[in-house]
Amino acid sequence: MIYFPYFRGRQYDLLALKNIAQQHILPPNIIPIIEPVRDIRALPQTVAAFVEHDQPLVVIANPTVSDYALTKQKLHDWRPYADNPQLIVGHILTPTVIPASLQPAANHRTLLVGRQYDELVAAQHAGWLNDPSYLLVPPEARIRQLITRPTVSLFDHAWLPEHERSYADITDGFFSDDWVLATLDGYHGVSDYTIGGAHYSEHGYPARAVTLHLTYFHGDQLRIHRFVSDDREDFRHPKEKFFQAVAKLAAWLPDHPDVQTPAALALADYHTSQHFPGLGVVKRLSLEHHLQTMAAYFKLHYPE
């Protein structure tokens, strides 16, 4: 079983991945995917961290969100690492993808993301789907009937509240058990957009509440607990709202020892110190916690 956590290459996503690479905790069957969205120094630095620590990583060569792909001359290019065997070059199936880009070089792996049924039908008829080492597709019955080769299911489990709803409406809930069902459905791996979700916004959006997200396992089921600030009236005072949310996390964590990863404990420490690190650091630590949680589970249940 392989797990491909899918990240859009924002600053704090990349910093979380870089820190995880330096901690060297990911087993070989957890392979993060980065779809670059910005030409920032953290991108090649993150790729370098994985390469230097002999850990596999996927970078999407033709990103489809933001305008990164339209920037011809990159100031911070990841491609100097493309020949390293630890780096898997990925492509998203689009009308502009050519077969040559899907064929792996000697001793190299490639990955293809197919998101639309009609595009997969065309690629199947053209014989393009046999070359990539890994094929990520939505877990749809018609796609399972179409493709007979081993595939990886790609699904977005994150819930984004709409309209008048907030995370306070569902503070604890189911997140995923894809790995349990994967074998039954014929998949040899699973992929998701972690707690960040598939939705991408170039500039983000304000929130009335500050919410801390922690994933944790209950048996083989991955659940998510949300610690939401009590103040949700307007968009002001993020510092005060953070302290409201982190106080709830600090009170909850001692009763859940299995959730006490280094990243979760670092978040709880901000309640003790009454220090506001900024919401970007909060996001980074939440992502690190998710990867630390998944690493521990996969090492126990799917050892390589």
Rank of each mutant, 00 (worst) to 15 (best):
R284D: 05
G90D: 03
A21V: 03
A42F: 09
R109H: 09
Q11N: 15
R41Y: 02
A158V: 14
F7E: 06
I2E: 06
H271E: 10
T183Q: 14
D169N: 01
A168V: 02
Q103Y: 08
L135Y: 07
I33R: 07
P303L: 08
E164C: 11
P85E: 10
V282A: 07
H275Q: 11
K299S: 12
I25R: 06
I40C: 11
P206L: 14
L120S: 02
G90C: 02
T94A: 03
A42W: 04
R165L: 09
L15R: 15
L287K: 03
A126R: 15
A100Q: 13
H289L: 02
Q124E: 09
A168W: 00
L285Q: 03
N19F: 10
A21N: 02
V89A: 12
A182W: 00
T151W: 14
F298P: 11
I170H: 15
D192M: 02
F175Y: 05
V190K: 11
I2A: 01
T71A: 11
G219N: 05
L287F: 03
A42T: 08
T110P: 07
Y3D: 09
E35L: 06
G219T: 01
Q145R: 12
F227Q: 00
P257Y: 07
N107A: 13
P206K: 10
L267W: 11
H237R: 13
W159H: 07
F227Y: 01
L212P: 11
A49V: 04
L214V: 12
S153H: 03
G189Q: 02
Y12K: 11
Y117C: 00
V47T: 05
A209W: 08
G219S: 04
L181I: 11
K248N: 07
W252L: 05
L267S: 06
E35N: 06
A105C: 08
A182Y: 00
W159I: 06
H290L: 04
F155V: 14
A296P: 04
T194M: 10
A126C: 03
T272W: 08
G219D: 08
Y302F: 07
F155W: 14
Q22V: 10
P206F: 07
T151R: 15
D185C: 10
I147L: 07
Y6S: 02
L93A: 02
D118K: 11
H290G: 06
D131W: 14
V281T: 09
L265G: 13
G278D: 01
K299N: 13
R38D: 13
I195D: 04
F242A: 01
A49F: 04
T148Y: 10
D54Y: 05
N130P: 03
V259H: 02
R115N: 07
V282I: 11
K283Q: 09
Q116D: 04
I143N: 00
H188S: 14
I40V: 10
